[in-house]
């Protein structure tokens, strides 16, 4: 085998050129969104989509955030942004904890038929959203949660449990059972072992689970559109309403700003926790 070879500088250059081109290609939409969200509407309609703004303004952002006509009132996206957080935070937290608990029971306290039950839970990953719309609407009605944020949390928890259980079960399978036994001899009970031993060692998989759930629930439109009321609509539905509103002129700059606001939280979660994401997905595959 040859040792480290000095590569051809022209080859290097070509490589970077191609990579650079692809970067531009992928970043163009974001660029267009960003610059247009800082332009007055006139500059867009006069045909300069790609040009930098001549007259920088943050007005579209303000408008999208707090003044635009989204529902009946001109509230901007702010209340819906808050709705989304009120929905996504409890939904992610509950789903992750329940998934971890399920995984813990299925691997460390397995009982007769536990594999079958796991199979059924997995089945939930493959049910298309559309199938459950009507039964879920009925269920939410019976529970008195229809058209409310807790109702949306409930729907997302039900849908998310399959995935979070799958993640945690597979992670805990390789978690040494001797640790649980040692803790039992030390006198720790079922929940103490869970809180003190299992959960603190679940960092990587918890991050994977949180990113997955956060992105899915935040970006969900179907459930949001189906099960919410005017005052409980999540961000995605509000954004749609903003863009689709038929009164007056289409304010593209405001739409762009709104879309970026809607995408920011998932982007932020990924940037903050992303490095754990790959690590979590890979954990167990390599010794260490």
């Amino acid at each position: 085998m040859s040792t480290a070879t000095r590569s051809n500088p022209w080859g290097r250059l070509a490589l970077y050129l191609v990579l650079g081109l692809f970067c531009i290609y992928y970043l163009t939409p974001l660029y267009v969104m960003l610059i247009n969200s800082f332009k007055p509407l006139g500059e867009i309609t006069s045909g300069g989509m790609v040009a930098l703004p001549q007259d920088w303004t943050s007005e579209p952002w303000q408008k999208a955030w707090s003044e635009a006509q989204v529902g009946v009132e001109a509230t901007g996206l702010r209340p819906y942004f808050i709705n989304s957080f009120l929905m996504v935070i409890p939904a992610v937290a509950i789903t992750t904890i329940l998934g971890a608990l399920n995984g813990y029971v299925l691997t460390k306290w397995s009982f007769r038929g536990s594999t079958l039950i796991f199979g059924f839970i997995l089945f939930g990953c493959f049910i298309p959203f559309q199938v459950v719309l009507i039964p879920m609407a009925r269920t939410l009605g019976l529970l008195g949660l229809a058209g409310s944020v807790p109702g949306l949390v409930f729907v997302h928890v039900v849908y998310g449990i399959s995935f979070s259980t799958l993640y945690f079960r597979n992670y805990y399978t390789s978690f040494p059972t001797e640790l649980v036994r040692a803790a039992q001899i030390d006198g720790a009970g079922f929940f103490t072992i869970f809180w003190r031993i299992m959960l603190p060692s679940s960092g990587p998989i918890a991050v994977v689970c949180v990113i997955w759930l956060f992105t899915n629930i935040w970006n969900d439109f179907l459930f949001g559109a189906s099960f919410s009321d005017f005052d409980s609509q999540p961000m995605t539905v509000a954004l749609n309403n903003l863009v689709q509103s038929s009164t007056g002129v289409k304010e593209y700059n405001v739409h762009f700003a709104g879309a970026i606001i809607a995408a920011l939280p998932t982007l932020l979660v990924y940037v903050v926790a992303g490095r754990f994401f790959v690590r979590g997905l890979m954990s167990g595959s390599v010794k260490g």
Partner: peptide
């Protein structure tokens, strides 16, 4: 009890 894998809480 002392376990084969030591079973120390990581």
């Amino acid at each position: 009890m002392v376990f084969q894998s030591y079973a120390l809480y990581p």
